[in-house]
Design a binder for these strands. Structure first.
Length: 650
RNA sequence: GCCAAUGUAGCUCAGCUGGUAGAGCAGCUCAUUCGUAAUGAGCAGGUCGGCGGUUCGAGUCCGCCCAUUGGCUCCA
């Protein structure tokens, strides 16, 4: 056996090293800078400590703070540092899990009776900085399961003991830094010294292992950086994100509001917000008419009978507003609809259907009501009454792929019209190890999952697949977008359903003159108008594209003597279909401009002596400033060009 | 629902260890007639989230409730 090994770098080059060389030594052999920046090393796909010897030929990749892998290592180590601080400050504290997350880290801890406040967070931050200054190494140690159990039994930490329970002997490792030792798979950065700048962001309750029936631990979220500037920049970025918060912008731009008298999670749309909603809905309705959808309209309530058949009642009673009972004894009454699909099945079932009719696509902007848990409500992204841009496609199994393709095309059109480029598409599949919990034939599922996969691929959609995420009634494809604070929200969704056609005994007559079961596809490109608009507001920071701006043009007379001409201009703009308003207040033009700028109106037209004489307007674009004077007709052409460019050829 | 924090005028926020509320912006009135991000003066505006308690006295202390925010769980 040679004592030389061959390491292959990401660029394909290979070099020979002594067997047992460490990641640090490899990094150091490349450059001193890399050795300084390096936090961990990928060895044949496994991320490891830099200090671990490499024993065989491998493909390696050195991770630094510039890689997601490197950041994850760094923040995971930071979680350990926080744990060390917590143990020092609150002896007897027990630890759950403490992973790195996308931005920072958290640790779930059991502090007994103690609760933490802002002052405590500062004390912990201080302690962490102090511990980091000692700059002690993270030391890995392989331990036997018995020793590990003995260690945590001694510490009386039932959480770690439970975690150990699921681990196999021989695969267990501890990491220590200073006096603190934790059960951990690793890897870690070489030492604590780089975690100088610490900010603990918030405290939250988190159920042990995400299970509501188990004890709630205290979750501490934090972030660390090696340089002060990086921490400052991050905190500033968080501040800037708050400026884009749709709740703040919704108030400032007068789009929507909430009233305690109306109720939590029940948004009230102000005139400008309602206009925005209508514009979005009109846009999609037009697209849907072009894509073979037929609008239908259904009421907001239905008999309990409908939901007993659909299976929503009483099994989902927790998430529904209580029914309006007519006859309590016989469980008869009405339910506010939590979804539109049961109603739509009844439209399908209005008369016998032929295979020649399929696919049938019923579309409705249907408002539904769900009794979301109080702690879950938030702005427009999670509400109790919302309008889905819903449609249900009834088709033959052989048509599923084509229909999915059409829906994907429509959804992509919607997303691109609003310049959402940074979205995630996820295909949710069955859990292959537990197929009994799903309704429908195995073979049908296989076909459907394959159809969705192919539809996504053929539409050029880069979708990730998640096993076990499918609903019990069918696989689905979801579109996710992040809000200003980086939280991911599901917007568009396409879901296959084997369940409802079965429950409502829906059929069509096939070319064999036999009855067949159609497949149902639920789909909503926006998802809900409320959530979509919430995320849209944050996406554009309240600067809506011209075609969506509630007010497109604000006309600003320089003085009272130009009011009449300004009103004439405003009328002319309205006549050609632009949403124009005129600011007739007795204020200086600077004041009116400021006010229109803050309302984020795309175009301001300043009108005074010069403009009146030349039948012109002086154009100011939001965020850009003065564009000079043009004739009214030239401005109208510019405005429409702006609209067309954003909306495409709708 | 659970954990934590927060709740003072339409908005943003002051209000020290308890002594019955204050600013800026917005609003209204008047003056100013104004050229690309705030003209000036005056006026008005608050059951200090709600209910109860402690106290001679509560925005301030305590309890319960409501709402909001950040998480946990679920979902569009």
């Amino acid at each position: 056996m040679s004592d030389q090994i061959k390491l292959t770098f990401p660029d394909g080059t290979t070099r020979e090293f002594n067997r047992g060389v460490t990641g640090s030594e490899v990094a150091g052999s490349i450059s001193e800078g890399l050795a300084r920046m390096a936090v961990s090393i990928g060895v044949d796909g496994e991320v490891r400590d830099l200090s671990r010897p490499i024993l065989g030929n491998s493909h390696i990749q050195i991770f630094t703070m510039r890689d997601t892998e490197g950041m994850a290592t760094y923040w995971h180590s930071s979680a350990h540092l926080m744990a060390e601080a917590l143990e020092a400050l609150y002896p007897g504290v027990k630890f759950g899990i403490g992973p790195a997350i996308e931005r920072g880290f958290y640790y779930d801890v059991d502090l007994g009776e103690r609760t933490l406040g802002a002052e405590d967070l500062e004390a912990i931050e201080k302690k962490m900085a102090e511990l980091a200054k000692r700059n002690v190494p993270y030391v890995r140690k392989e331990v036997s399961k018995a020793d590990a159990i003995a260690f945590f039994t001694e510490k009386d930490d039932e959480y770690k003991l439970e975690l150990l329970n699921d681990l196999e002997d021989g695969t267990i490792s501890f990491y220590s830094q200073g006096d603190f030792t934790d059960l951990c798979r690793g890897p870690h950065v070489p030492s604590t010294g780089s975690m100088k700048y610490v900010k603990l962001l918030n405290i939250a309750g988190a159920y042990w292992r995400g299970d509501q029936s188990r004890k709630q631990l205290t979750r501490l979220y934090g972030i660390t950086f090696p340089k002060k500037k990086e921490l400052d920049d991050y905190l500033e970025m968080l501040e800037l994100a708050k400026q884009r918060d749709h709740r703040k912008l919704g108030r400032e731009l007068e789009l929507f509001t909430f009233s305690q008298k109306v109720g939590p999670g029940l948004p009230l749309w102000l005139p400008k917000g309602a206009r925005l909603r209508d514009l979005l809905a009109d846009f999609l309705k037009k697209e849907q008419l072009n894509s073979g959808y037929e609008p239908v309209v259904t009421p907001h309530i239905a008999r309990l009978e409908l939901y007993k058949i659909s299976g929503h009642y009483p099994y989902y009673s927790d998430s529904q507003f209580p029914p309006m009972m007519e006859d309590v004894e016989n469980d008869e009454g009405y339910l506010l609809k939590p979804m539109n699909c049961p109603h739509h099945t009844q439209i399908y079932d209005d008369r016998p259907r032929s295979y020649r009719e399929l696919p049938i696509r019923y579309a409705e902007f249907g408002t539904v009501y769900r009794y979301e848990q109080s702690g879950e409500l938030g702005g427009l992204t999670r509400v109790r009454g919302f309008t889905q841009d819903d449609a249900h496609i009834f088709c033959m199994p052989s048509q599923v792929k084509e229909e999915f393709k059409n829906v994907i095309a429509l959804t992509l059109k919607v997303l691109s019209a609003l310049s959402f480029t940074d979205f995630k598409a996820q295909i949710s599949l069955r859990d292959p190890s537990n197929t009994e919990k799903y309704i429908g034939e195995d073979a049908a599922w296989d076909d459907a999952e394959q159809a969705i996969r192919e539809a996504a691929a053929e539409m050029g959609l880069d979708a990730i697949e998640e096993e076990g995420e499918a609903a019990f009634y069918g696989p689905k494809l979801d579109f996710m977008v992040k809000d200003a604070l980086g939280r991911e929200w599901q917007l568009g969704t396409v879901q296959l359903d084997y369940n409802l056609p079965e429950r409502f005994d829906l059929t069509y007559i096939g070319d064999d003159n036999q009855k067949h079961r159609p497949v149902m596809i639920h789909r909503a490109p926006f998802g809900s108008l409320e959530r979509f608009i919430g995320v849209l507001i944050e996406h554009c920071g309240g600067n809506f594209p011209m075609w969506l701006a509630p007010v497109q043009v604000q006309v600003l007379p320089v003085g009272q003597s130009f009011n009449e001409y300004s009103l004439q201009v405003t009328q002319d703009l309205k006549k050609v279909g632009l949403r124009a308003e005129c600011d007739l207040r007795h204020e200086k033009v600077g004041y009116k401009i400021r006010s229109a700028e803050m309302q984020k109106v795309p175009y301001m037209l300043i009108v005074g002596e010069r403009e009146m004489e030349n039948k012109a307007v002086s154009v100011r674009r939001h965020g850009e400033g003065d564009l000079g004077s043009v004739s009214l007709s030239d401005f109208v052409a510019t405005a429409f060009a702006d609209i067309d460019q954003a909306i495409g050829s709708n």
